[in-house]
Simulated scan of single mutants.
Amino acid sequence: MERTVKAGATGPASAGAAAPSDDAGLPEVAGLLDGVPRQRGPLPDAAGATPAAVVAGGEVSVPAAVVAEGEGAASRVRPLRPWRLLPTPTGTPFTFAFGAVLAATTLFAAYADPALVHALHQGSSTDVAHLVRTPVLVLIASALWTAGGITAPYTLGFLLVLTALERRVGGARTAVVFLAGHVLATLATQVPVGLAVLAGHLPGSSLHRLDYGVSFGVAASIGALAGLLRPWLRWPALALFGGMLVQDLLNLTDPLTNWGHLFALITGVGLWPVVRRWHKSRGHRLSRS
């Protein structure tokens, strides 16, 4: 089946020139189109078969397969949907559920008794003392609090970055990236503190400090997500975020935490081969469903 499109007129015919007949063939018609660039197309075969798109009798015949291909490409252009930047229960269940927990603990920290909140923060802290006694418990509990409230940069970054990452690789794999940054950056900053205390370079009070929040996991997720972006967006985003982390480190605001953020970002970048493979396999699976 072919779809037929009327060809436009090329201008008045010369005086005395006979109009081309229906069976004049391609050469006569092509002569009326002098000066118009010719498009490359399939050549006739040895038996003189007509091309895929032919001009005959003032009509252009286009195979239905070609028309369908063009219409399919147009249908694949999706409109901009800003709401996809935020988590949803069905589209990004991990980020949505995790975000709901963070919202609850943040509201609790804002309105509960300050002494109780401080005790819970201290009990959830991933300092050296807690990591030695209950490592699994505090590594999980410390990621259930936000530092700085619901409008803090890392809290907003959690919603946007993890939503984007989960839409590309899935919820379970997003959790792996987050936990990898959270756990590895915590150990990379706290283990040296414990060794320094053992060596006598730091006081024993260094074993007890507040260390909680989602910032390590978010920093790793930013690094991993950058590997799935186009180069024109990937490198400026990494330069901007990495520059902010280096600036914080140079300002000595909180060296231990600042080093942790930088290490978490490097962890996310190191996961590029893995997240790209996850993204590719997820795309194949969705295309088959």
Rank of each mutant, 00 (worst) to 15 (best):
201 H>L: 08
26 L>W: 14
133 R>D: 11
108 F>Y: 10
125 S>Y: 03
137 L>A: 12
11 G>M: 02
144 L>A: 06
82 P>F: 04
208 H>E: 10
164 A>S: 15
54 V>G: 11
275 V>Y: 01
269 V>W: 07
130 H>W: 02
220 A>H: 11
205 S>D: 08
65 A>N: 03
112 A>T: 05
149 G>K: 12
123 G>V: 00
255 P>Y: 05
138 V>P: 03
62 V>L: 13
122 Q>V: 08
12 P>N: 06
198 L>V: 12
150 I>L: 12
107 L>D: 12
234 R>Y: 03
282 R>E: 14
279 H>E: 15
24 A>I: 02
156 L>C: 10
67 V>Y: 01
5 V>M: 07
286 L>A: 13
143 A>R: 13
233 L>C: 07
146 T>M: 14
190 Q>H: 07
118 H>G: 11
211 D>I: 00
112 A>Y: 06
230 R>L: 03
289 S>F: 04
234 R>H: 10
98 F>H: 11
165 L>A: 00
225 L>V: 00
160 L>R: 08
130 H>P: 09
79 P>Y: 04
267 T>Q: 13
22 D>Q: 14
106 T>S: 10
261 H>Q: 06
123 G>P: 04
190 Q>R: 08
2 E>P: 08
248 D>C: 03
220 A>M: 01
218 V>P: 06
79 P>T: 12
68 A>P: 03
224 A>N: 14
60 V>Y: 01
263 F>S: 03
58 G>H: 01
